[in-house]
């Protein structure tokens, strides 16, 4: 790991100033991703600004009935919080499906939003990777790509977004609150992560000096009937091949509310708008679910290693909606 200087910020203003003054500075939260990337030589900050002392670790109810989650709330606390379990079970399940209990005790909500891909070519400094080293090429396109994306891909990058939490946040229409010395702004999840296009190294809408301070969940009656389904190569402690965050509201056999997002299959946490559109107002049947899934995956493009994800995602979407319809919420 490249040596760096360490600053522990006592308050938000100090933290923001520290990065505004130093383009080589990085915020350090739980460290579960950044420390790993620094050890692998992928991230090489000059200064690490430790933000874990900032007062951003609260979860509270908002006046409108929504919930505000501080950026430094640990993943395990988020999943266990009564408001999240009862009103947004998909978020609780998504967080619990990620990593291990030890990592969830360390990892923060803000850090999880900024989690970087697990693409092996990104992690291997001897390999070509446009994300790590713009212009160097993509090792994955002609190499191992079983874990890679089929949606939102470009000729420059097919790396899958690794987060489970973000998939649930996408389905829930969450809004990310960010702050810098220039002030506070709010970014909807839908535009927080950026598809790779020709600039795969640009992964989010954040400027380098901006700090995620909170995530807000809007009130949603649909969200109470929601669940997360993760398909992976072993029963626990593995990244998703395909994951589905789904919220479903059905009245008199008709879909009246739906939130759907996919993980493991896309370069960003993938809001499934086409499927949602196909479902709203449609009869809540296996056939509608299947048709919605097909609509969502229609633009997907697979490679020999990962084309299976297209059918796997269709099936996982259908099965998750079916289960929500028949069994209801896990809350």
């Amino acid at each position: 790991m490249r040596p760096f200087s360490y600053v522990s910020a006592p308050d938000v203003a100090t933290a923001l100033r520290a990065v505004a003054d130093d383009p080589g500075a990085k915020f350090l939260g739980g460290g579960t991703n950044l420390v790993d990337l620094m050890r692998a030589g992928i991230e090489q900050p000059d200064t690490v600004v430790d933000i874990t002392s900032l007062p951003l670790a609260e979860i509270g109810e908002r006046p409108d009935g929504g919930v505000r989650i501080g950026a430094l709330v640990r993943n395990s606390r988020l999943a266990a919080h009564p408001l999240i379990r009862a009103r947004y079970p998909v978020l609780s399940q998504a967080v619990l499906a990620g990593a291990s209990a030890q990592l969830r005790n360390m990892a923060t909500v803000g850090g999880n939003l900024l989690q970087r891909t697990r693409c092996p070519y990104f992690y291997d400094r001897t390999a070509a990777c446009n994300k790590r080293e713009p212009g160097s090429g993509c090792g994955a396109i002609g190499g191992f790509n079983r874990g890679h994306a089929v949606l939102g891909v470009s000729g420059a990058c097919i790396a899958a977004h690794p987060s489970d939490m973000c998939v649930a946040l996408a389905a829930l229409d969450a809004v990310v609150e960010v702050e810098s010395v220039r002030g506070v702004r709010r970014v909807p999840m839908a535009s927080f992560h950026r598809p790779p296009g020709e600039t795969p190294h640009v992964e989010t809408d954040l400027s380098p000096d901006e700090l995620v301070t909170a995530v807000e969940l809007p009130p949603s009656p649909t969200a109470a009937n929601s669940r997360y389904r993760k398909v992976r190569d072993r029963a626990s402690y593995a990244f998703a091949l395909v994951s589905v965050a789904a919220a479903l509201e059905v009245r008199d056999g008709t879909v009246t509310g739906v939130g759907l997002a996919l993980g493991g299959v896309a370069t960003t946490p993938w809001r499934a708008r086409r499927a949602e559109h196909a479902l709203l107002g449609a009869p809540a049947t296996e056939e509608s679910f299947r048709r919605a899934a097909e609509a969502e995956l229609a633009p997907a493009t697979g490679l020999p290693g990962n084309a299976f994800k297209i059918e796997m995602a269709r099936r996982a979407v259908t099965a998750t909606l079916r289960r929500l319809l028949t069994e209801g919420s896990p809350a």
């Binding site: 360490y6 579960t32 430790d50 395990s76 030890q102 005790n105 360390m106």
Partner: peptide
């Protein structure tokens, strides 16, 4: 009292 992975924890934190 909470379990963590000490390999990803900087001692200074």
């Amino acid at each position: 009292g909470e379990r963590i992975n000490s390999c990803l924890a900087l001692a200074v934190q």
